[in-house]
Nucleic acid binder design. Sequence first.
DNA 1: AAAAAAC
Length: 489
Amino acid sequence: MAEVTETTAASSSEGKKPAVPETKRLWGDEVDDEEVQPSATEEKAVSELNVDALAIDENTKVNKFLDEPEDSRIQAVTTGDTPYTSASTFEDLNLSPELLKGLYVEMKFQKPSKIQAISLPMIMTPPYKDLIAQAHNGSGKTTCFVLGMLSRVDPQLQRPQALCICPTRELSIQNMEVLRKMGKYTGISSECAVPIESRNNDRSRSRPPISAQVVIGTPGTIKRLMSQKKLGVTDMKVLVFDEADHMLAKVHIQHESLVYFFLFPIWFQVLLFSATFDETVKNFVSKVVKDYNQLFVKKEDLSLESLKQYKVILPDELAKIGVVKDRILELGENIGQIIIFVNTKRSASMLHTSLVDLGYEVTTIHGALNLEDRDKIVKEFKDGLTQVLISTDVLARGFDQQQVNLVINYDLPVKYENQSEPHYEVYLHRIGRAGRFGRKGAVFNFIMTDHDLMIMRKIESYFNSPVAEIPSWGSEEDYKAALKEAGLL
DNA sequence: AAAAAAC
């Protein structure tokens, strides 16, 4: 059963006024104000929760969706008196026949996943309230907002009506591919607003305004298009932030181009999606959205059951490269695809060079590569032409390649501001590249120093998810046993 | 520092 619980949010509205007035929502309000930081809980009164309506009948489960974690404990909090009924089939959503056909024929979906069943009615039911939606990695969030955007577009109106902002170029392209596939029969037009080849940037000046009905892209390009009046918002109905916690992190808001979005009033629906929302971000987003519904998952419930995590304790850098070379790269084809995450571009290049020098076929992606190379490397990996990909955190979030069974944290993710703090969110997103939609997967965390060990322990306790130790870093048998235990061999 | 992107 979907566990739907009335949370503490309901009890602690102590008559505080919302920070933003009901009628006028100017995103610029109080963005910089450190002192007034009302929590999400104080911002609104949770008046009613339709527990029964939101419950999902597990008996009607059709298993296109493999083993969606049974205990994915998504909790829902709704505001106002709009009743929402969880959608057990896509027919429940009053979608156009064209859209339904896209879901069944192109996407080969049979029924909504849990997050889809709960969130889609919230997205599609008037008065189209804002939504903060947290759900596990690989549980089908993209479908939620892509379907949300497609279903709200008026096909007769050739103007931008839905906008989706993503943290990276790669994710924008991926989401666009999903949208075009799903919307294939609808005739809805779309445009990807991401940086194009570094040279001929003149094109954007002379180009006509965007008429596409759905626009997906990265902050910088979207900002530029808007300030050049190439992207109008007059007919906008939905604004989606994919990986919303990352997009709206305070650092971003203050120092980056996203600040632009806070300068004009928002009258349309805002949807925030991510697998992670840390407390700081949660408190902050309550200023961005208002009178919103929310779906969230406790951090202890966020680890994927189907994913086995291990730590490998090894003496030095040489041993790290040795393990990748002798244990990982020798596994052969039947292990599926592998992503090796590193913390810096330099680390990526170094590992890449040492492996290529030894004659191994690995590819590497990071933000310093030119755009054509980035596209090419992602495409080759998605086409299954390459098995092993070294990556910085460019691909830590959202990257969806179902054949990835093994993720390696060659470096453990730490916070930049404080190197002795793990970056919990990045860790969760990285490992979520394996085990998409309930598939089995394994994670190897390389532990080289005492500091690494401390970071690892903190991660384990934060997610309350123990990470088994590979007994001996040099033993081939130990890795095989681990992979067997994970169900991969 | 990963990333975004370039007026």
